[in-house]
Simulated assay, not measured.
Amino acid sequence: MANIKYFSDVTGEAVQLKAPYGMPNEEFAARWPGIKGLRYDGYSMRVGYPTSGTSGVMPVTRMIEYKSQPSLHECNAKCLDGKHNGKCECRCGGKNHGFGMFSGLLKAA
Rank of each mutant, 00 (worst) to 15 (best):
D81R: 07
F102P: 07
A29C: 00
T51W: 01
D41P: 00
D41Y: 04
H73K: 13
D41E: 04
G22K: 10
G42Y: 10
L80E: 12
C90M: 03
G82K: 00
M63P: 06
M45S: 03
L105I: 11
D9A: 08
F7M: 07
G12R: 09
W32L: 14
F99I: 04
E89Y: 07
G37A: 10
M101E: 03
S44W: 02
M58Q: 10
R46P: 01
G37E: 02
E26F: 13
L38T: 06
P70E: 01
T54S: 12
N25L: 09
A109I: 15
A30I: 06
K18L: 12
T61D: 05
P70A: 03
S103F: 15
R46K: 12
S103M: 13
L105F: 09
G12S: 08
S8E: 06
N76K: 13
N85M: 14
T11F: 14
E13V: 11
I64W: 01
N85W: 12
K18G: 15
F7V: 02
Q16A: 11
P33T: 06
R39S: 14
L105P: 08
A2D: 02
S68W: 08
G104Q: 02
A14Y: 01
F102H: 11
P59V: 02
T11S: 07
E13D: 09
A14Q: 11
S44Y: 04
K95G: 06
K18H: 10
E13N: 10
N3A: 10
I4H: 07
F7H: 08
K18W: 12
F99M: 09
T11K: 02
P24D: 09
F7C: 06
N76H: 15
P70N: 08
P33G: 07
S55W: 15
